[in-house]
Structure formats: structure tokens, C-alpha cells
Design a protein around this nucleic acid. Structure first.
Lengths: 255, 255
DNA sequence: ATAAACCTTGACGTTGCGTCAAGGTCAAGG
DNA sequence: CCTTGACCTTGACGCAACGTCAAGGTTTAT
């Protein structure tokens, strides 16, 4: 049961270059060679290659694969856990990149569609659909169908002017929030302004306002990781700070 | 407003090497140089660098970034969309890898739990639960409740010793199967051994054995894609080969 | 004047191979 | 016996985006 490079390569579904490379880096050496220097692989090497490819399929680096297959009592579990961590980190990074892309894409869409009546309408509908998909279930449970529908209706009913105001307010909330975080506490002048701006922003889509609902939303910013992630992307702790601003603001409102 | 490499690098938060590299590949050339050959960057270059870094933050390749920043009327939207696609594909791939890792981790956990009495019991129950979920319905239809329950009971009643024998036999079936596939036909010496091993393995959980039921199970390995996928992961065609081994073995049994 | 800080170009290393290039080996066919 | 074609060898470059010396020139501060 001996194989030449090509035979083993075909058997395992890799290229001969790969096998020569594995030989070169000492990951998989042939059992021996012919007089002419041809590599010859045996059953042991076939098994070892299977193992190697198994770990390679999980995206592991060859260096680590070597450590695993070289020592049979290697702590495989820890290696797998650490590898999973590395994969998770990579995916998180990709998620971040995706969000950045989405946002600039949205900005682009926004600017383009703003100047285009029809597409502008479609955009609003899309936003609502996305909102529904993300938060619809929970929001409806928490605030009731009527409130959610009213919010959607208000969004749909927005004119381009109102839409601009809505977006501008949203951006101003963020800007002021960041400024307030740098300069002081949620109870400061700026902190209260954040709360006020946020209320105005809400006013664009909420049909009725109540301090209680406002505070509840603030709590959700901290409790729900999707919201937290959204605000914290601007600065860690931003969601929490915003919640505190809202608390301070509503406390003042109620005297 | 002129900057040397280091000044611009510090300003933008990149390394001087990066700037020299961008110069080298023609992505960002300095406005001019001093007599001594020092690079000098102006306001235009600062802006351009900002742009470059913006797209770089989304994980774009420099080549594509160049295309974008070089022509102001470049179809940015399409570029972003295509980039988003590429990111999504990468993330999907990561998800796949993660699933593979999770699965082998789960397998590992399984083996570890073997050495722990309590968890060992839990594991058996879990296995039964999984079996029930996957095949329970069909198995009960085909073989009757009594047979299935008996099999489950036998599994639950296994001692650690018996369990080890069960697993070891299972592995041996696979090993022998792969060997047989390499060397010959299901009717060969090895092929028959596969059938025999498989019967022994079945004996661990089946209360009674009949060649007919054995063959029926073999057919199911080919007909049911879940079984097929399980065996074919070791090598394409393994499920079919196993079925043929079983056929050959039972044929011999019956004379 | 001299050291510290900064600049230059050049070149190698990183990961996992793909892809020539130049040349040796082996089995089959004319 | 010679050729052809398939296979084998080692060696080396290329890929992406820089990090990291190395060897040497320039500027600035002391």
C-alpha cells in the first residue's frame, strides 16, 4: 500500500504542491523514497494526512496542527477552545466591518434616495421592515401593537423635510452624547441636553410621549445587547451614559 | 501645512512604513520632496489619506481603494455592495468553521464525560434523546415500539465497560470499512469482516439479531441521507460500501 | 561638535500554497 | 531502440500589507 505524491494527492483531494509543502515544513514526511528520489507514502502517512486535513477544515494554522498531530497527548480540548475563540474574534471583526459598510451604504442610499422621491419612500419602508425584523416582536410585546404601528405609520408619513429633521436629530443626539461623556456627568448641562434631544428625536416617531416610556427605552438600551452594541460603537459605555442622561432628564421633567 | 512622513503618520495613526508602502504602490504619493529626498505631504494628501483609511476600516483591499479614490465618479455604491458581499461570504465561511469546531468539541466532551460516572449517565440519556429526535419516529414505525425501547434500555443499562466496547467497536467498524474500501470489494475478506464487526456493534444495542433486519438497516444507510452523510464524511461512498458489506456478510451467514 | 531623532532605499519574513522553470525517471508504443 | 507523455525532483517567484532590521545620509537641539 504505497502511494506516490500524485496518488496520495488524488486520494486525499489536495494538490501535489501541498504534499511537497507539508514535507518541506516537516508536517508530513513520506515514509521513504525510491532510488530516484520519488516520495513514497504508506498507510501511516495516509492516516496522518487525514488528521491534518481534518484540522485544516476547521481553519487551523498548520503550525498548530503540527503540534496536535505530533503529540498524541496534546490538550486537544484547549486547542479547540482557543481556536474557537480565534474564530469568534474574527467573526466579530467581520461583523464590525459589515456594520461600517452597511452604515456608509445607508448614508449613500440616504443621500441618493433623498433626492429621489420614489426611492425615498421605498427606503422608509425598508427601514420599517428592518426594524420589524429586529425589534418588532419584542417591541410589540412591550409597547403593544398600536404603539408600534403608530410609529411605523408616522415614519411612512414623513415628508422629506421631516425625515431630514429626524436624521439630523439622531446625529445630534450622538454628537452631544459624546461631548457630554467627555466633559462631565449625565446630570450636567450637556447631559440634560442629550435627554432633551433624545426626546425630540423620539417625538419624530412616537405618537405620545411619557417619561416612563422614555426611561424604559433607556433601560432597554443597556439591557439589549443590540442597542448597546449600536451606541457603544461610538464609544464604550455610551449606551449606559445615554440611559443615565434620560433618567436625569426625566427626573428633572417630573420636578 | 506640510508634513513629513512621521508627522503625517502620527496625525493619521498609521506607521511610516505604511506611508512609504502607499507611496511605493502609488496609492498615496507625497506632494513633493526636499532636496535631501524627504517626502513632504500637503493638505490634499491628508484628505486623500483620510479617505483611504476610511475604506480600509471596512476591510477593503488597497487595490480597490485605489480605484475608488482615483476616480471621483466611481460607482461607489456598487463597490460597497460587492464588498459587503465579500464580507458576508467570509462570515459564512467562519460560521461553517465554527460549526465544525463546535461539533468536534462536542465529540470531545463526550469522550471526556466517559471517565466521569455521573456525566456518563447523562451522556447516554442525551444520546438516546438525540436518537429519538432524529430517528425515533421512523425507527418506531419500522421496528415497533418494543424494539426501540429495548434498544434504549440496553443503552441505558450499559456499564462503562460495555460502553467502551460499544464505542471501540464502532470505531473499528469505520477503520476496517475504510481499509476494505481501499483494498478491495465488499465480498473480500476485509469486507466480510466489516459486516461481522458491524453485527457485533449492533449486538451492543439490539436485543435480537436477524440478518433481515441487518440488511434492512444497511439499506437505510444508503436511503437516509442523514446516515449517508455520517458515513460518507469518512470517505465518499462509504455508506454504500458498508451496505454491500452487510449484504455480503449476511448472504454468507445464510449460506 | 556631537548625539538624538529623523529620513532614505533595500531587502527579508510573514501564510499556504499556485505557478512556472529546468531537468531527471518511467512505462508504453512505434 | 527511440520517442512521447506522464510523472517526478528541487528551486524560485508571487500573492497582501505591511513589520522589522540594516546601512547610511540629514536635521535639529544641546
Amino acid at each position: 500500500m504505497e502511494y506516490t505524491v500524485k496518488q496520495l494527492a488524488d486520494l486525499a483531494g489536495v494538490s501535489t504542491r501541498t504534499l511537497r509543502y507539508y514535507d518541506q515544513i516537516g508536517l508530513l514526511k513520506p515514509a521513504g523514497t525510491t532510488e530516484a528520489g520519488y516520495r513514497l507514502y504508506g498507510a501511516v502517512e495516509v492516516d496522518r494526512l487525514q488528521q491534518i486535513l481534518f484540522y485544516r477544515e476547521m481553519g487551523m494554522e498548520l503550525e498548530q496542527i503540527r503540534e496536535i498531530v505530533n503529540s498524541p497527548d496534546f490538550d486537544l480540548k484547549e486547542a479547540l477552545l482557543s481556536h474557537r475563540d480565534s474564530l469568534l474574534r474574527k467573526r466579530n471583526r467581520l461583523d464590525q466591518l459589515l456594520e461600517t459598510v452597511e452604515r456608509s451604504l445607508a448614508g449613500l442610499e440616504g443621500r441618493i434616495k433623498m433626492s429621489d422621491k420614489e426611492k425615498f419612500e421605498g427606503f422608509k419602508k425598508q427601514l420599517i421592515a428592518e426594524n420589524e425584523e429586529k425589534y418588532g416582536q419584542e417591541a410589540r410585546e412591550k409597547y403593544g401593537d398600536a404603539a408600534v404601528d403608530a410609529s411605523n405609520a408616522k415614519l411612512l408619513g414623513m415628508s422629506e423635510e421631516e425625515w431630514k429633521r429626524f436624521s439630523a436629530l439622531g446625529e445630534e443626539v450622538i454628537r452631544t452624547l459624546l461631548e457630554a461623556m467627555e466633559q462631565g456627568s449625565p446630570e450636567s448641562e450637556l447631559g440634560l441636553k442629550v435627554g432633551e434631544l433624545h426626546r425630540q428625536w423620539l417625538g419624530c416617531t412616537w405618537s405620545t410621549y411619557s417619561p416612563e416610556a422614555h426611561v424604559g427605552l433607556g433601560e432597554m438600551y443597556v439591557a439589549d445587547e443590540r442597542f448597546t452594541a449600536y451606541y457603544d460603537q461610538y464609544r464604550p459605555g455610551a449606551a449606559e451614559f445615554l440611559r443615565d442622561c434620560i433618567k436625569a432628564y426625566t427626573a428633572k421633567l417630573r420636578g
